[in-house]
Lab assay of single mutants.
Amino acid sequence: MDPFVVLVLCLSCLLLLSIWRQSSGRGKLPPGPTPLPVIGNILQIDIKDVSKSLTNLSKIYGPVFTLYFGLERMVVLHGYEVVKEALIDLGEEFSGRGHFPLAERANRGFGIVFSNGKRWKEIRRFSLMTLRNFGMGKRSIEDRVQEEARCLVEELRKTKASPCDPTFILGCAPCNVICSIIFQKRFDYKDQQFLNLMEKLNENIRIVSTPWIQICNNFPTIIDYFPGTHNKLLKNLAFMESDILEKVKEHQESMDINNPRDFIDCFLIKMEKEKQNQQSEFTIENLVITAADLLGAGTETTSTTLRYALLLLLKHPEVTAKVQEEIERVIGRNRSPCMQDRGHMPYTDAVVHEVQRYIDLIPTSLPHAVTCDVKFRNYLIPKGTTILTSLTSVLHDNKEFPNPEMFDPRHFLDEGGNFKKSNYFMPFSAGKRICVGEGLARMELFLFLTFILQNFNLKSLIDPKDLDTTPVVNGFASVPPFYQLCFIPV
Rank of each mutant, 00 (worst) to 15 (best):
F4N: 02
V6N: 05
L7V: 10
V8E: 04
C13P: 08
L14Q: 00
I19D: 03
R21H: 15
R21V: 12
S23M: 11
S23N: 12
R26E: 14
L29S: 07
P31W: 04
T34L: 10
P35N: 06
G62S: 01
L67S: 02
L71Y: 13
E72W: 06
R73K: 13
L77D: 00
G79N: 06
V82C: 15
V83I: 14
E85K: 07
L90W: 15
E92H: 07
F94Y: 04
F94R: 01
G96I: 04
P101S: 11
R108E: 06
F110R: 12
F114N: 09
W120V: 03
K121E: 14
K121V: 09
E122A: 13
G137W: 10
E142R: 05
A149P: 01
C151R: 10
E154P: 02
A161L: 08
P174C: 08
C175M: 08
V177I: 09
C179Q: 07
F183T: 06
D188I: 06
K190G: 11
D191V: 03
Q192D: 11
Q193F: 11
N202K: 14
N202D: 08
N202W: 11
E203F: 05
E203Q: 10
I207T: 07
V208C: 14
S209K: 12
S209I: 09
P211H: 09
W212N: 05
N217A: 11
I222D: 03
F226E: 03
P227R: 08
H230G: 06
K232R: 14
L234E: 05
F239W: 13
K247L: 12
V248A: 06
K249Q: 13
I257K: 12
N258A: 11
D262I: 00
I269D: 07
E272T: 12
K273V: 09
N277A: 12
N277R: 12
F282H: 03
F282T: 02
L294T: 02
A297E: 08
T299C: 11
T305F: 03
H316M: 06
E318L: 10
A321Q: 14
V323P: 00
I327T: 04
V330N: 09
V330S: 07
I331Q: 01
R335L: 00
D341Q: 04
D341W: 04
G343H: 15
T348V: 08
V351F: 12
I359G: 07
D360H: 05
L366P: 04
V370M: 05
T371M: 09
D373Y: 01
V374N: 00
G384C: 05
S390D: 06
S393D: 03
V394P: 03
V394R: 02
L395F: 02
E400C: 05
M406W: 12
F407I: 00
P409Y: 03
H411V: 01
F412L: 01
D414I: 05
F419Q: 04
F419K: 04
F425I: 03
F425L: 03
P427W: 01
S429E: 02
G431V: 02
R433D: 03
F446H: 04
F446S: 03
I462L: 13
D466V: 12
T469E: 14
V473G: 08
C486V: 11
